[in-house]
Structure formats: C-alpha cells, structure tokens
Computed example of a mutant assay.
Amino acid sequence: MNTGGSLAWVFYCLATHPQSQDAIRRELASFPDGPDADYDQLPMVHAVVMAAVRLYPGFTFLLRKAIRDTTIGDQLIPNNTFVGLCTRAINHAEHLWGPDAAAFRPERWLERSAEGPGLLISPLGGAPASEGTSPWPR
C-alpha cells in the first residue's frame, strides 16, 4: 500500500468515528497558522494517523534475512535465515494492545501532560517495549 492507501484508511476511520473528527477539528481550530507553525504539536492528528496505520498497516507481511547470527527471544536465527513478520497480527495482538486491540482508539497514542492541560504523544501507544526501543526521546 502507498501513502494514498494509508490516507484512505485514515479517512475511513474518521468517517466511522465522528468523535475523532470533532477532536481533530477542535485541535486544528486552536492551532496557530503561519510559517512558524509546528505541526508536530498536533497530538490528536498524530494519534488518529497512528491508530489507523496500526489497524491497517501498509504491509501486512514483511520478510527479512538475517545478515549475521542473532536471536529473537531465546531462538537462534542463523546467518542468511529468512524471518517473516506479520505486522497485522502483531498490531491486533491482545497481549500487546489489550482486549480492545482490534478497536480504533486514538487515545492509546495520547497521554496527559503533567505540567498542564495539554495532550502529549505517547510514542508506543500503550504497548509494552524493551527499554531504549522508543523512536522518540522522553
């Protein structure tokens, strides 16, 4: 799937969840416009996109080849071994995302600011992770 396909799923999720549409409208209405606008400061927009892409990933199956001997958990993966990763299964796994894993819930990507009333982006969406795996600094 390409960017257009992902965007179509975002629009589908918004069309079927009017409360998320309203939240984005409120966020955009209060957002300062202009050349200095920092679009990284739109946590609800970010959360909706992340929620839609988690449910409808661009690639549902990825194949990778080990470039050296390694392990996944306790399983040895020898050099030149192909490993398949089913992103859709991981993104719908209840042991990672909870009993509502199949639900469109942008709120899982948000957390309340300790310093004020604003929302912050939760980079892992509530899923567990090993220390140091987050792409965003805290």
Score class of each variant (00 low, 15 high):
Arg138Cys: 12
Ala8Val: 05
Thr133Arg: 08
Arg138Gly: 14
Gln21Phe: 01
Arg108Gln: 03
Arg88Cys: 06
Arg138Pro: 11
Gly84Glu: 12
Ala129Arg: 07
Pro135Asn: 06
Gln19Cys: 04
Gln21Glu: 00
His92Ala: 05
Ile24Tyr: 01
Glu115Gln: 15
Leu119Tyr: 08
Gln19Arg: 13
His17Cys: 10
Gln41Gly: 05
Leu55Asp: 01
Phe104Glu: 00
Ser130Pro: 00
Trp9Ser: 13
Leu14Thr: 11
Arg88Pro: 02
Gly73Tyr: 10
Asp40Lys: 13
Asn91Met: 12
Glu107Phe: 02
Gly84Trp: 08
Ala23Leu: 05
Ile121Val: 03
Leu119Val: 10
Ala23Cys: 03
Ile67Asn: 11
Leu85Ser: 05
Thr133Val: 08
Leu55Lys: 01
Pro35Tyr: 06
Ala52Ser: 15
Gly84Arg: 06
Glu27Gln: 07
Arg64Trp: 09
Asp22Ser: 01
Trp97Asp: 02
Asp100Ala: 11
Glu27Ile: 07
His92Tyr: 06
Pro123Gln: 14
Ala52Ile: 04
Leu62Met: 15
Gly118Arg: 09
Phe104Pro: 00
Ala29Tyr: 12
Pro99Tyr: 12
Ile121Gly: 00
Arg68Trp: 06
Glu131Trp: 05
Ala102Met: 10
Met44Phe: 12
Asp40Cys: 13
Leu28Phe: 02
Ala127His: 04
Ala103Ile: 08
Ala89Arg: 10
Ala51Val: 05
Asp69Val: 03
Pro106Cys: 14
Ala23Met: 02
Val49Pro: 00
Pro137Leu: 13
Leu120Pro: 00
Ala101Met: 10
Phe59Pro: 04
Gln41Trp: 04
Asp33Ile: 13
Pro35Lys: 07
Thr16His: 08
Pro78His: 09
Pro99Asn: 13
Gly58Ala: 13
Gly125Phe: 09
Gly98Pro: 04
Ala8Phe: 01
Leu63Ser: 14
His17Gly: 05
Gly5Leu: 02
Arg64Tyr: 09
Leu7Asp: 07
Gly34Phe: 09
Pro43Gly: 02
Arg108Thr: 01
Asp36Gly: 03
Ala129Thr: 06
Lys65Thr: 15
Met44Pro: 02
Gln75Phe: 10
Phe59Arg: 08
Leu110Met: 12
Ala127Gly: 10
Asn2Gln: 12
Ser122Ala: 11
Arg54Glu: 08
Cys13Tyr: 03
Ala103Gly: 08
Ser30Gly: 15
Tyr39Trp: 15
Leu119Gly: 05
Ala15Cys: 13
Thr16Arg: 07
Pro18Thr: 13
Pro35Leu: 09
Glu115Tyr: 15
Ser122Gln: 03
Gly5Glu: 07
Tyr39Cys: 10
His17Trp: 08
Gly98Lys: 01
Ala127Tyr: 09
Ser130Phe: 00
Gln19Met: 05
Arg112Asp: 13
Arg25Ala: 08
Val45Leu: 14
Gly4Cys: 09
Phe82Val: 09
Ser30His: 12
Asp74Trp: 04
Ala101Arg: 05
Asp100Trp: 11
Asp40Phe: 15
Pro99Gly: 10
Gly5Ile: 08
Leu85Gly: 02
Asn79Thr: 04
Leu63Pro: 01
Pro128Cys: 06
Arg112Ala: 15
Met50Phe: 03
Ala101Asn: 11
Leu62Asn: 10
Ser134Asp: 05
Gly4His: 08
Asp22Arg: 02
Leu85Trp: 11
Gln21Trp: 01
His92Lys: 09
